[in-house]
Design a protein around this nucleic acid. Sequence first.
DNA 1: GACTTCCTTTTACATTTGTTAAATAGTCAC
DNA 2: GTGACTATTTAACAAATGTAAAAGGAAGTC
Lengths: 191, 191
Amino acid sequence: MGSSMEELYRYFDQFYLLNQASRDALEKTCSEILILKNELLQPFGHTCKTIYYIKSGIARIFYYKDGRDITEYFAFENKIVARVESLFPGQPSKKAIQMLEDSHLIAIHVPGLYQLYDTFPQIERLFRLIFEAGYVETVNRMESLQFHTAEERYLDLLKKPNIIQRIPLKHIAYYLGITQVSLSRIRSALK
Amino acid sequence: MGSSMEELYRYFDQFYLLNQASRDALEKTCSEILILKNELLQPFGHTCKTIYYIKSGIARIFYYKDGRDITEYFAFENKIVARVESLFPGQPSKKAIQMLEDSHLIAIHVPGLYQLYDTFPQIERLFRLIFEAGYVETVNRMESLQFHTAEERYLDLLKKPNIIQRIPLKHIAYYLGITQVSLSRIRSALK
DNA sequence: GACTTCCTTTTACATTTGTTAAATAGTCAC
DNA sequence: GTGACTATTTAACAAATGTAAAAGGAAGTC
């Protein structure tokens, strides 16, 4: 596990520099996962107890509403993915996580992580800062859903590399809060 | 300040029970504020450095888009309000906080709070848990903006006490992501 | 009470988005 | 390559929402 953690530590360093004791303790809660395209990383109805770091691949969080497959979130390599609305309150999630490419992940076991919080305040701080950043991202996304047009949201998404090239448009449409037909109209109007 | 903190501690107790040393330290970062209806608690363009607990009254976070006054968030008595997208990254906010009633607040000075995090891990944990709950609330709100109809969102809002009675419909409309005219149509269709 | 101001609803029309179905394009397995 | 399957676009119509302007209501001041 040692060397494969290096990439994860570089990710953590962006938020907070852990001392060696904290790193060693944290490593014990981590394990590696290889998972194929289209497979579910986490099923529906499951209470989320894992935080995943994506070494390679793409994850999406999705759920069904009125029989329709709605994508709530995409996560790419070098990012964290977790269903916080299940993880934090300890409630079952009505959402699942699926991989959109063959992926290489590091799983962080959260009950083990929470035990470390008491002994290693640095670890608690690290994850506080990581989730604070996720909170800010969600507030900004909410603002764009609340008062930007679908076309504005699509143009914002185009600015981010990889998204359009690597994710089917049907998922992108629902992520933007519109149907696939409506996204197709927006795209053809832009040509 | 002593007795007026009791209510705040009862709020904190819902998230985490602080020991007495932490309480005493925390109290030094707090001050009381009385503010009148319609006044701005925090101006536009200001980097948020304060978390407010609302003893009485209503706050709204809002901003202007294309000259229109958009309400992003409401907070009632016995709740916390802060512009996290400014507080966490330390960036100026394009949003302001306004009180919708004469209000009684407790202001928590965040630079002072952050200093306490190193000495009192219990305080860091308390605020981690408070903001985790806020994160979950925001994820759920985002989901409702992404894929519920405006009518569904309005009916959800009706279930919460106080909102409709105490807040002008023009603010509620934009909070729901629609215009006041559209909200008025939805309301009359429900009669 | 009359006046002003602000809040809310209503009306008419334009625009956007949804729905359903069909057509086209692309991908994968064999 | 062929066939099966999936993804994307297009078309036609329905429903929802936006825009602008006017009309009612409600609340506060004098």
